[in-house]
Amino acid sequence: MGFRLEVVTPEKQLFSGDVDAVLAPGAEGQLGILPRHAPLMSILTEGELVARRGEEELSFAIYGGFIQVLPDRVIVLADVGERADEVDAEQAERARREAEALLQKEPSPALRAEALMALRKAQLRLRVAQRHRPRRPAGEAS
């Protein structure tokens, strides 16, 4: 028995459909949500949101937001978010290299913080994109 998951950002709806389980980056640790979870509202940090539907895994990069768990559905309000298949892996890789190069050069504190943030974001996007690659078939995840 699954439940309904909605993932929305202010700019668009990323996903709406039935899933079996959700793993979300809660502000106070990872949140695993299975059917019949208690009603919950929590802040999300940046991280990967994974939804499982049968053998299939859907992955989203989320940069902060909010999750609401209701008896029959789960709503994720992401400040900014991307679906795994939308992530431009090449661009993320470029961004990662740029951020790393900047950090090598011992920049000013402000610049350093910015580079670190860019780096974290790029790593997250790459991780999500990686997951989206065609998976080996036959029962890898269960």
Partner: peptide, 23 residues
Amino acid sequence: PARVADYIYEPSPEALLDVVLPR
């Protein structure tokens, strides 16, 4: 709004409003 009596709030309702209202 879905009327649900007992939410678990993480970390707290105030902190949640702090995030949601500016957004």
